[in-house]
Design a binder for these strands. Structure first.
Lengths: 402, 402
DNA sequence: CGCAGTGATGTTTACGTTAACGTCTGCTGC
DNA sequence: GCAGCAGACGTTAACGTAAACATCACTGCG
């Protein structure tokens, strides 16, 4: 964010900052060079306290040629406006106690110099950055990007920006590394969207004392967690299918490493057991449509399969394609339910019955929780905040063939 | 990111702050502890200004009790380790000139206190933040989220974090507002992903002197622009269809406000004109599958329509559904080509022929360009950097029915 | 006329870090 | 035994901002 027009305000003549050195004695770079010592190396032998006689002052800013020192600071504005920098500060922050004419002058000077407050200095002063860090593993799933978007939007509404730290491979080291970087970064709190069970497995621990909220995890006993109510969603999907008269429900899972996938599979199994139905062997996918297609091809071979609960919409798309190719009509012969309710699912062939997940709400709650922690200063209240789901019935489900 | 152990370093006794007061009176750390204050508690009675009588102090942070002043600073570590803060700095930054044993002691102290460098101070000192700002309008399109992901990944690899500023409605005011916020934020440069022509229309201008790269825009004459080669992609789609023997190609556009949509439509029209084919009236969509469906229903009524170029894959999904519902076989009667090559498109029914867009590469180049600007300090070299596309032929296209 | 009371503005200082420079210790070589 | 030197470590200042405190010019009143 450096500006690069060194001499914009030429007209005002001597207005230039002189590079910042200005303040004390100007001192041409030439003379300031010499170190001044050489003289009595002995006398101030001890400590000397303030005792900085003679030219000692002019150090600093030892910046060689150009570069560096370009940004316009309050001092520059103050100089041009002929006031103190404190007055500039007051104007900049809209504090009272500045008379109209002065304010005008300051504003004019700001405009002329293109002044922008330096947030590093501000953050240093206030001890906070108005920024929330988001650590996540991959933005390419619809869920994550929507959640992040919601987080960004709500954070912005509260005056916070968000900083993204991606993790390419979710190993413990990487997560910790990201956390370290976060710690060094300008963030007041952190939201972790990992979707893999590292945190809940206890293999990774967040640094204590950091304001954090975790999404999509089972670590509610140790952290503040926000998540979609996976179990409820999966259960409602299974019940919907059983309610239509299907004898049992097959399942295409997400990747084993995913907490959400695990949770959904668990709930699916439980719902079947509770209803006293047989539990078919689950087919494993990896969230991608391609993996759903593969699973779908196998399901198409299962004569007894009349209903499938697929762990996300994209895999459901693959399943639909496979069934279509194999000539098994949906929902005539096989009913399919997805999870997520991505916008496209209404346009699948046939339009998909699916479990709606409110990513925006998840994001909203994350921000809310994190802000509460920041503002109240307390430590993270552990516990899990579940966002409800909603079954959206479209055209991919029907009673089983007679 | 506040820690919450107020007095962990008890052992050192009265060592606590007194802060940098040091300078004026030498004074041994011990006695210098409580200088000044205690004196005249009354005089500042007035001050009026903010007029915050009584509990006045607790402003900012509105935090009641303790709070504030908790973070562990180098001085704290230094105190515990019995060295100067400069030495701590050296250890923290891996600078040479620290003997092993000392280093160990400092590291131990750091661990004990849970020290983390304060990046605000660091940024203030260095004059840069190692952060790139990304201004964007909506993260929910696949393209944007992938681009952002790539940006984040590559930026991270270079030691930069990214800060996201979402814009809910892309009006001029909002964009400018975002820019202002960015200016105040801790960023060294900005990447703008607007996908609407505000910049190219000249209605919005980026503050001069800011290192910026713009994605998806026509402002190459004034800014540094990175974009997918929309025109080439659209052209290859049209040529593919014409090459299969179709007399002409229909088109479903994206929203009028989108630069990319406009570009694709333009190229489509041009390609047809160049080939001397009639140009059917374009149908307008809004990127969503639903709008594609609507358009598809109308196309299904057009007897002469044998080939459609849809401006993105999601709308293509809708078109496919509409054609399927109306009993028009794809690609038997109608061929369809999309744009984007989202991962799902391989699982559409039928698998979609589409123009592959390399979002990751776009992100990579953005980071690269922006870093070059930062490092070389120069002003933005305007010009457009086009990322090539690639036609992916799948099963949704075929020669027209005889 | 002097003084308390304002309101506008200036001055000092601290925030945490680190470049630049100073000092001190220990050692080499003569 | 000491000059000379190198390496370890301490001290100071400065980055830009804003709270706290200080100062100054008035106003109104006894």
């Amino acid at each position: 964010m450096d500006l690069d027009d060194p001499e914009r305000q030429a007209p005002t003549g001597g207005a230039r900052p002189g590079g910042g050195a200005q303040s004390e004695g100007d001192a041409h770079p030439a003379e300031k060079a010499r170190p001044a010592e050489g003289a009595r190396p002995a006398d101030h032998a001890r400590q000397a306290g303030g005792e900085r006689p003679a030219g000692g002052a002019r150090r600093g800013s030892g910046v060689p040629g150009g570069r560096r020192r370009q940004r316009v600071s309050m001092a520059d504005v103050a100089r041009l406006a002929g006031v103190s920098s404190q007055t500039v500060s007051r104007v900049a922050n809209g504090h009272p106690g500045v008379i109209g004419s002065t304010r005008e002058q300051v504003l004019a000077a700001m405009r002329e110099l293109g002044y922008r407050p330096n947030s590093a200095a501000r953050a240093l002063r206030y001890g906070q950055f108005n920024t929330i860090g988001v650590i996540l593993f991959n933005l390419s799933t619809i869920g994550n990007s929507r959640t992040v978007e919601a987080i960004a939007t709500h954070a912005a509404a509260e005056g916070y920006a968000i900083t993204l730290i991606p993790i390419d491979v979710p190993t413990q080291d990487n997560v910790l590394g990201a956390f370290t970087r976060m710690g060094e970064l300008a963030v007041d709190a952190v939201i972790v969207i990992l979707e893999v069970h590292l945190l809940d497995a206890g293999t990774v621990t967040l640094p204590p004392g950091v304001h954090a909220v975790v999404v999509d995890s089972d670590a509610g006993d140790r952290y503040s967690v926000v998540d979609t109510d996976q179990a409820e969603g999966a259960r409602s999907a299974v019940r919907h299918l059983l309610g239509l008269g299907h004898r049992t429900v097959w399942h295409v899972t997400g990747p084993e490493s995913s907490f959400a996938a695990q949770r959904r599979a668990q709930a699916w199994r439980l719902a079947l057991e509770e209803a006293g139905r047989p539990v078919p062997p689950p087919l494993h996918g990896d969230w991608s449509a391609g993996s759903g297609y593969t699973a779908g091809l196998r399901l198409a071979e299962e004569p007894g399969c009349t209903a499938v609960f697929v762990a996300n919409d994209q895999m459901a798309l693959g399943v639909l394609r496979a069934l279509h190719e194999r000539g098994r009509s949906v929902p005539g012969e096989v009913s399919v339910v997805g999870f997520d309710d991505i916008p496209d699912s209404a346009c699948f062939v046939p339009p998909l019955t699916t479990v709606h997940q409110d990513f925006a709400e998840v994001g909203r709650r994350c921000v809310q929780l994190v802000l509460r922690q920041i503002r109240e200063g307390g430590t993270a209240p552990s516990g899990t905040d579940l966002v409800p789901t909603r079954l959206v019935v479209r055209a991919s489900t029907a009673p089983p063939p007679a």
